[in-house]
């Protein structure tokens, strides 16, 4: 299963980015292959409108089934994520990627 994290960096010790639509990076971990793929989303700063749907579309392309983030997506992004059946877990905004992954595995995120 592919798990996507919203992050401020590209390694396991990077802090999470609490924002979804305007996250700086996606850090995608594939549990089967144990491979990590990252995506630089910083170009989204140039978008005045619709960051949520745009970033959701990117997440769909990355093929993640689980999203771990901080504050949670807004209404427009949620509509897209719902359509592509991504499960969203929030509350990891203050953690590192590694901590967020552990917290998710322990069932500490909602």
């Amino acid at each position: 299963m592919k798990i996507a994290f919203t992050t401020k960096g590209t390694d396991w010790d990077s802090p999470m980015d609490p924002r979804f639509g305007r996250t700086e990076y996606f850090f995608v971990y594939d549990e089967e292959t144990e491979k990590v793929e990252t995506f630089d989303n910083r170009a989204i700063e140039g978008e005045a409108h619709g960051a949520g749907p745009k970033t959701s579309q990117k997440l769909a392309e990355l093929g993640a089934e689980v999203l771990i983030t901080g504050n949670g997506p807004g209404g427009n992004a949620a509509a897209v994520l719902n359509q592509i059946n991504v499960k969203v877990y929030t509350g990891a905004g203050e953690m590192t990627v590694r901590e967020a992954y552990e917290a998710w595995k322990n069932g500490d995120l909602n």
Binding site: A48, H49, A60, V80
Partner: peptide, 9 residues
């Protein structure tokens, strides 16, 4: 220009 239309699948 506003990401108001998206192609999803």
């Amino acid at each position: 220009n506003f990401n108001a239309v998206l192609k999803m699948g």
